[in-house]
Amino acid sequence: MDSFGSILTEAFGLILIWDPDLIEIIGLSLRVTLTAVIVACVIGLPLGAAVGAFRFPGRTIVAVVLNALMGLPPVVVGLMVYLMLSASGPLGPLQLLYTPMAMIIAQTILVTPIIAALTKQVVEDLHREYVEQFASLGVGPLDRVGALLWDARYSLLTVALAGFGRAVAEVGAVIIVGGNINHVTRVMTTTIALETSKGNLELALALGVVLLAIALFVNAAVMAVRASAVRAAYA
């Protein structure tokens, strides 16, 4: 096998050539993962905030379930979604199997518990600080959730980032429900799996480096936003 240096060179070469197939794959990866993370946030943020801020019967059970679901193996999620979307499954008529939408659904299921469970943690801490002030002002439940989410916004960016990291890196779910179809459902991770199975380890690793670079860039951007928020004592 080549040295790691030559693999890095190949990775940068791949980006510099601006290979249209590679760009398409990166684009689809980001489109699927970002959409899944946004949908997961729309569901998971209010859910996590409600569990973090309110006492209600079964709250502990919900929290335990959310925490447990954080560890869902992607392959299991992939199989579940496959069985739902398969032509012989209950959602078969929607004909979503082997489409980007199927991959978004699978990743949303993977990421939502992570967003919800981490949001619960963040919001619970903040709520402890705010609870008497809220009660004194007579803030209603909806306003509470809204205010807590807004005031935790910079911590929640990191939460969304954790979800992004999980989704962009997983292969087990998307390869089952997407099918790794060239130009349709082929993303970074399934390409890496495919090239590995072809024995093209250098190319696979170079793609891994590209994936890592994207993850680094996204993380750096979020951290920069967060650093400015810390200076304003908003985080």
Binding site: E129, Y130, E132, Q133, S136, L137, G138, A147, W150, D151, A152, A233, Y234, A235
Partner: peptide, 20 residues
């Protein structure tokens, strides 16, 4: 009751400021 509570206000030993 709730309506009466709205006629009251409270200032705490350590001020609780929203992150705004």
């Amino acid at each position: 009751d709730k309506a009466a509570r709205r006629r009251q206000a409270m200032v705490f030993q350590r001020p609780v400021m929203l992150r705004r």
